[in-house]
Design a protein around this nucleic acid. Sequence first.
DNA 1: TATGAATGAGTCTTCATTCAT
DNA 2: AATGAATGAAGACTCATTCAT
Lengths: 218, 218, 218, 218
Amino acid sequence: MSTDATPQLRADARRNRDRIINAARVVFAERGPEVPMEEIARAAGVGTGTLYRRFPDRDSLIRAVGQHVFGRVLDEARAIAARESDPWRALTEFLLTATDMHTVLRLSMHSPRAREVLGADPELTQVRGELLSILDSMVRAAQESGALRADVSSGDIAMILSIVLQGVRDVPDDVRREAPARYLTLVLDGLQARPGTPLPGRPVTAEDISMARVYTAD
Amino acid sequence: MSTDATPQLRADARRNRDRIINAARVVFAERGPEVPMEEIARAAGVGTGTLYRRFPDRDSLIRAVGQHVFGRVLDEARAIAARESDPWRALTEFLLTATDMHTVLRLSMHSPRAREVLGADPELTQVRGELLSILDSMVRAAQESGALRADVSSGDIAMILSIVLQGVRDVPDDVRREAPARYLTLVLDGLQARPGTPLPGRPVTAEDISMARVYTAD
Amino acid sequence: MSTDATPQLRADARRNRDRIINAARVVFAERGPEVPMEEIARAAGVGTGTLYRRFPDRDSLIRAVGQHVFGRVLDEARAIAARESDPWRALTEFLLTATDMHTVLRLSMHSPRAREVLGADPELTQVRGELLSILDSMVRAAQESGALRADVSSGDIAMILSIVLQGVRDVPDDVRREAPARYLTLVLDGLQARPGTPLPGRPVTAEDISMARVYTAD
Amino acid sequence: MSTDATPQLRADARRNRDRIINAARVVFAERGPEVPMEEIARAAGVGTGTLYRRFPDRDSLIRAVGQHVFGRVLDEARAIAARESDPWRALTEFLLTATDMHTVLRLSMHSPRAREVLGADPELTQVRGELLSILDSMVRAAQESGALRADVSSGDIAMILSIVLQGVRDVPDDVRREAPARYLTLVLDGLQARPGTPLPGRPVTAEDISMARVYTAD
DNA sequence: TATGAATGAGTCTTCATTCAT
DNA sequence: AATGAATGAAGACTCATTCAT
């Protein structure tokens, strides 16, 4: 975990904090970010009072969940960048790994409320920046190696990832589980097209989306 | 418009109904499907009493918006099917047209609540069925013509469409406007790959998603 | 009534507004300014929703009660100033009238909360300013006529009034009812003492208490 | 100190108890008697657990503060009665001393809650009784000596004291500090008026206020 | 014993829906 | 028929008090 803003905490309090974040992650995913706080408390096995002691309001809980998840993605991105020398494989692996890891986030973060809150969090903004910077390196390397078409930029990739991560619902379980990887693979084929169909619009750079929430396309 | 559940209505009442649906479409898009009803009434320029006379509760308003938008997509799909003889062009055009037409819907329908309501509406279910059937014909024809790779099915296409329609936020205006067409084009390149990378999972058929809400991947 | 910030209101809404202010005046007096809002609503014979529609939070209700009561005192002060030519009688009458009229306020306004809220209200600040200015004229005239000792100023009078208006509790009803007039009369005797005992401290002017809440000494 | 309900206590526990009472006295004065218990604990430099070990609930803490302060007034009253032979000077000195000593109490005790709790405490009732009895002697002696007007009784004096002790706020510091002595002096001048203006109401006796809380006119 | 974490009842406040005007 | 006021149930949040560390 890359981010950790809570220095010292009694062992039991620490444990509760973790349980709450995990419960919130799951419950937000299932019921949206407006679920009654009591539901989250119940899922975490604590009283509402404990929930509020740890997170003084809903927004701060949303922030904590966001930081938790983004921190994990960042760790993963760093590991892949360090380990994988082939540029196309690094990019591919990163996208698929992120997909695999964060089925959750794509569900958690759908709401104007969540977007606003996360967008205003400086800690999260920084993590997102680092993530984009790693992605940018991967994209450039893959283009230099000739594996990736030239008319896209790292912002495009981030957006595609975020879009695909939205996921689908109300389909058979196996379909839902496979969907992100399946459609990401399809897009990756499109990204290798040489020459591909001319793309409408212009390449979207990392700067373009520095104001965006990478994984929260909506 | 294909669907219309409210046959006779005085002219002014009719006008109110339309204003409300349009206001709701916009306000749902901007503020999510949980906006206070009063806000919708205000946007429509009517009192809450009038809103409730026309739509007895929030769900019925959500349904009406859904029917309105789906109806327009269906009309368009029929027109394209009738007009376009080249299968790949028909498919492409349909997807891009749907993209263009429904920036709105993708914003409106993100919530467990909306999903449930729309999923339970028989009228909407039927429209969706017709839409899927048209899409299915287009997909088969495109595969027979050799333009479309064989390891996907019409359910895949519907899901991809629904995913891309989710759209993005917090990016420059031109980027947001172009995003659906841009990434759909990219996917279409992937869909033409011969041979493409083997896709994980299995083809998703129209049956698979008959329980799904095509445009509400969330 | 001197202050009225609420222009047009449907007849029934107006009636409810008045009932709420009156109920709040009484209930604040009896139970302090932290009574559950529901209690006030019940006393006014309305639902909590109505209460909140009219006064979006507790503070705005406190403000409304304060304005209501102060407005009535101001009206009375003006009437006395216009009617009474003898300076000492004017002062005396004003103090006793205020006493008589506002048994209520002295009970309503005891709390840091109430003080803060009322102190921050510009409308109320202005009414208080006018009141002080009228009182100041009365005090100067009474001193010029020789009826009032010279070592006090209008701020002193306002403070004394506010102190006496605090009232007492847990005493027989007749005692409580008479207390303000009785002790004010006693003070008035002290105010006529020529020469009186030298007073510790210095005369308190209207400026000194322009930051104070005249009737809310604590 | 006249009253002490907690005989044996380890030195450090004793120290904690005192710190808590003093902190409560101050914090009640500043923030009213409904301040969160945690705030009092913090001001005393202890944990809430310690606070509750010493005082099982808020009421018992209010009682302890009341006993503490009243005890000190009683000690003072006894000393004055023993030391001062001139009746008017004894009365005057007592009133001004009480004023000087208890700026605090007048702030602490403004709330229905506090009143009720203190009124129900037998220990406090007894202290108050002794205090009234001393005051009664002083009043009678002063009237017999001719220094004090005859149309008042000891209950009046107690009430006046309690009223003046309420104090004022939001005025310059020097004014607030001097206010009780200044206005008590004014009243004392009124109390010497021979003949004074006829007072409305009737003399208030010690019996009349035996149910009252001397210092808690509110 | 001192601490501060956990609990949950009590209030405040919002807003979907009903109803008087 | 249209309006906007009234209602009250639902959910957020606070804090007195209890309890594990």
